[in-house]
Computed example of a mutant assay.
Amino acid sequence: METSVFKRTNFIGAQQISPSLYNLTIGLTLCWGFFVNWLMMMTIPVESLYAIDHRLFFIGYFLCCMAGSFILNRSENPLISFFGYNLIVVPFGLVLNVVVSQFDSALVLEAMRVTGEITFVMMLLGSMYPAFFQGIGRALFFALLITLVVQLAEVFIFHKSHPLTDWAVALIFSGYIGYDWARANAIPKTLDNAIDSAAALYLDIINLFLRILRILSRR
C-alpha cells in the first residue's frame, strides 16, 4: 500500500467519481475542518487551554496529528480517512484558539479574507498550469526547510524575528496550495483520495493563514 495519497497514481478498485463531485468533496471537507475550528474557538475558553501543562498540550498535539496522518496515508476507506482528518483538525483548532485570541477580531477577519483570496487564486493557477506546479514540489520543500532553519536561528540565537521570514513562509505555502491542488487532480478521483487531498490542503491553508495574520499584525 502506498504511503502517500499523491502516490496513488494507479486505479486499484475503489469507485471513481466525477471530477465535479471530487472537487466538491474536497471543498466540503475543507469547510468542515474550518467549521470545526471556528466552533472550537467560539465554545472553548482560551483560559482553559492556558491552564493545561504546555508539555502535555504539545505532546497530545503531535500525537493526534501523527495518528491522523498515519490513518490518512494508510486507509482507503473514506469514513476512516475522515476520522483521521478530524484528528488533525481538532488539535489545530486548539492552537488556532490560542493564537487568534491574541489578535483583534477585525484583523483576524482580514487575515481570513486574504487567505481565502490567495487560496482561490492558487487553486485556479494549479488547475491552469498543473505541470508547472507538480514540478516545483522539491523546490518548495527546500525553500521551506531553509526558511524554518533561518527563523529558528533568529529566535534562539539572535532573539528576534525578521518580518521577511513571515513573507517567505507565506509565499511558500501559497505555492504549496497550488502544488497540492494540482497533485490532487492528478490522482484517481475517489472519495477517499478527495478527503486525503483536502487534509493536505487544509494544512497549507491554515499555515498560510497564521503567517498572514502575523504579517498584518506588524502594521
Rank of each mutant, 00 (worst) to 15 (best):
A14I: 12
L210H: 00
I118S: 07
E154R: 00
S18I: 13
L39P: 03
A200V: 02
T115Y: 09
C65T: 12
I187M: 15
Q151L: 14
A51R: 10
L140S: 11
V121I: 13
A139S: 14
Y85V: 02
D180F: 05
P163Q: 10
L125T: 06
P188C: 15
V95Q: 00
H159M: 00
L24D: 12
I205H: 03
Y50E: 11
S81Y: 04
T147M: 02
L56A: 10
R219Q: 09
T25F: 15
H54V: 07
V150S: 15
A170Y: 13
I118N: 04
A186W: 14
P188T: 14
L21P: 08
Q15G: 12
S101T: 02
Y50A: 15
R74S: 00
R74V: 02
G116K: 01
L144T: 14
I212W: 14
M41E: 13
I44N: 06
L87C: 07
I71A: 02
F11G: 15
R219H: 08
G27W: 08
N193S: 14
K189L: 13
D166E: 12
D204I: 09
S174P: 11
S69Q: 01
N73C: 00
I26H: 02
M41W: 09
F34L: 08
R214H: 06
Y61A: 02
F141T: 03
N97V: 13
S161C: 03
I59N: 15
L201P: 01
L96V: 02
A200F: 08
Y50H: 09
T43L: 10
F133Q: 07
M42D: 05
I17V: 12
I157N: 10
N97P: 08
Q16W: 10
A186H: 13
